[in-house]
Computed example of a mutant assay.
Amino acid sequence: MSELIFLGGAHVNVLPGDSRGFAYGDGVFETMRVHHGNVHWWTAHRARMEAGAERLGLTLPSDLLIARAQHELFGRGHDGVAKLIVTRGGGARGYARDADAHPVWRYSRHPLPPAPREGGLVLRWCATALAVQPALAGLKHCNRLEQVLARGEWDDPAIDEGLMRSTEGDVVCATSANLFVLHGDRWSTPMVDRCGVAGTCRAWLLSQTGAAESRMRPADVESADAVLLCNAVRGILPVARIGEHAYSPHPAVAELRQRLARVHPGFAAGH
């Protein structure tokens, strides 16, 4: 991993210890797939980060500064994963925020994840629930403790991911991906208006499928004809099993993966 850390527009060597992101999770982040030095969904990532920053009252670095960091870490031809974290700058101890604090931000380079399991992912249901909090719903904010707890529920290499419900029992997402289910010829995906993250790959799939955003119960998932997970780094991931419920490979999922590969070169065959 390589990283660059900035205080406002100035490069610094270490993360400031009084950063409110470190103290309170007061920030937002984006995790992005890089192909040949480019973030092909940058516009979508930037728009989501701007929406989160506006809701939290954060100042974001300029596109120019981010582009410079991107070029320094990835150049023109490298593949990988970029992670951009923007947090509120430091101030006095306590929850009150300093409106004049410069943002602290970090841009880092990571390797691509391994190829998904051949034949589809194996999922489980998580016991850890997502708290209902509309003020933070949809945002990719820096407090991911619920996901950390959920992911800590298993260490079985035969399990690829876990599905999470809200404290009200609605299905929301996987620990690090959004969820889509197919019944007949109709796609649907859980609403993220009370908790969960509005993913960039999720947004693309909504535009392609016209999927309904709905409250979803576990039975709606288990009775589906096909299930997929998606995120901006791994793309579209077919699901083969959830607990005792198995799903055969479905042509609708394969067609969506092919469509994604045509618009995002990072997901083309061999990448």
Rank of each mutant, 00 (worst) to 15 (best):
M1E: 13
M1K: 09
S2R: 12
L4M: 04
L7V: 13
G9C: 10
A10E: 14
A10D: 15
N13A: 15
G17Y: 12
D18H: 12
D18Y: 09
S19Q: 08
G21C: 11
F22N: 08
F29T: 06
T31D: 02
R33P: 09
V34C: 12
G37R: 04
V39E: 00
H40K: 00
W42V: 07
W42D: 05
T43D: 12
A44K: 05
H45A: 07
E50R: 08
G52I: 12
G52K: 03
E54Q: 11
L60M: 08
L60V: 04
L60S: 03
S62W: 04
I66Q: 05
I66Y: 07
H71G: 03
H71L: 14
F74T: 10
F74R: 04
R76G: 14
H78P: 07
A82F: 04
A82N: 02
V86N: 05
G89N: 03
G90V: 08
A92F: 11
R93Q: 12
G94L: 06
R97P: 01
D98Q: 12
A101N: 03
Y107S: 05
Y107P: 03
Y107K: 04
R109G: 07
L112F: 06
P114H: 02
P114L: 07
P114G: 08
G120P: 10
G120F: 01
V122A: 12
L123A: 12
R124D: 13
A127V: 10
A127N: 11
A129Y: 01
A131Y: 08
A131F: 06
A131D: 14
V132Y: 00
V132T: 09
Q133W: 08
Q133S: 14
C142P: 09
C142G: 15
Q147C: 15
V148T: 06
V148W: 01
L149W: 13
W154I: 10
D156C: 14
P157S: 11
P157Y: 04
P157K: 00
I159N: 04
D160I: 06
D160W: 00
S166N: 05
S166W: 01
T167K: 02
E168P: 01
G169N: 01
C173M: 12
F180M: 11
D185L: 10
R186C: 10
S188V: 03
P190W: 01
M191G: 13
V192K: 04
V192N: 01
R194W: 08
C195P: 04
V197A: 09
A198M: 11
A203C: 10
W204F: 08
L206N: 03
S207Q: 13
S207C: 10
S207E: 15
T209I: 11
T209P: 08
S214I: 15
R217I: 13
R217A: 15
D220R: 04
V221R: 01
V221E: 00
A226Q: 04
L229S: 05
A232T: 03
V233D: 09
R234L: 09
G235P: 02
I236E: 03
I236Y: 00
P238E: 02
V239S: 14
R241C: 14
E244L: 13
S248V: 05
P249L: 02
P251Y: 01
V253H: 00
E255F: 11
R257K: 13
R257Q: 15
R259E: 13
A261D: 05
R262M: 14
G266R: 01
F267H: 14
